[in-house]
Design a protein around this nucleic acid. Structure first.
Length: 212
DNA sequence: GCCGGGGTTGATGCGCGTTT
DNA sequence: AAACGCGCATCAACCCCGGC
């Protein structure tokens, strides 16, 4: 049994937040638990508290589609241990979480004992991912594979493309020049094997990363 | 023809792992 | 430890195209 951790649970679904809460309570005694239900609230909390030992982050949250939340977090808080929680168990999704630097990946379908042991493993500092998923994945040559090859920054850009934003707007939001955004966009095209932003957005939408 | 948006290319600097 | 290579992010200069 671990003790004395500060843990943030970020999930927009109250029922599942409770389930996670329960699992954490079983795995950790004397933990300080913080619950948030939006990305904005999460970001706000992160500016208020430090020394967060673990963040349980839902893959699909209001204010972030797909991995944009994780990408943003890794960018702003590289040291923060993040565990993805998701309804999806697709290997490509899990691998993407790995690529984005998640410490673990917990499927929502996992039974409570699994949840607890996963949490314990992660709190010990070891990664925990579902069975049968490894970094040396079987090459599947599908869109999900190609999406998984994007860097976090490129993924953020792609998310914003899917929101219909102009290069100029993306540049402003990422605090970089428009030229940089264009370079990212071109790199995304190359990795996704598409010719323009429209096709890139279509490719993204075909793998369940579409907007809420 | 000018302007604005999209897209391409080459250069630069950085971090990181590998080689020597 | 130094050199090296690699991927990434960043950027400017440039081209293409369509609307006004």
């Amino acid at each position: 049994m671990n003790t004395g951790y500060r843990i943030i649970i970020a999930d927009d679904h109250p029922l599942f937040r409770n389930a996670l809460l329960q699992a954490v309570t079983l795995a950790v005694s004397d933990a300080e638990l913080i619950e948030v239900d939006t990305i904005d609230a999460l970001m706000q909390r992160l500016t208020e508290v430090d020394d967060v030992d673990l963040l349980l982050l839902d893959l699909k949250m209001p204010g972030a589609s797909g991995f944009s939340g994780l990408a943003q977090l890794r960018h702003e808080y590289p040291e923060l241990p993040v565990v993805m929680v998701s309804a999806s168990e697709e290997p490509a999704v899990v691998q993407q979480a790995m690529r984005f630097g998640a410490l673990g990946f917990i499927p929502k379908s996992a039974p409570m004992p699994t949840l607890v042991s996963a949490l314990n493993t992660i709190l010990e500092g070891d990664p925990w991912f579902p069975e049968g998923v490894s970094l040396e994945q079987a090459p599947e040559d599908n869109i999900a594979e190609r999406l998984a090859s994007l860097t976090p920054q490129q993924f953020k850009v792609l998310i914003m493309l899917s929101e219909g934003k102009l290069n100029k707007q993306i540049a402003y939001e990422l605090n970089v020049s428009e030229a940089t955004v264009k370079a990212h966009v071109t790199a995304i095209f190359r990795k996704l094997d598409v010719k323009n932003r429209t096709q890139a957005v279509i490719a993204l939408s075909q793998t369940g990363h579409q907007q809420d």
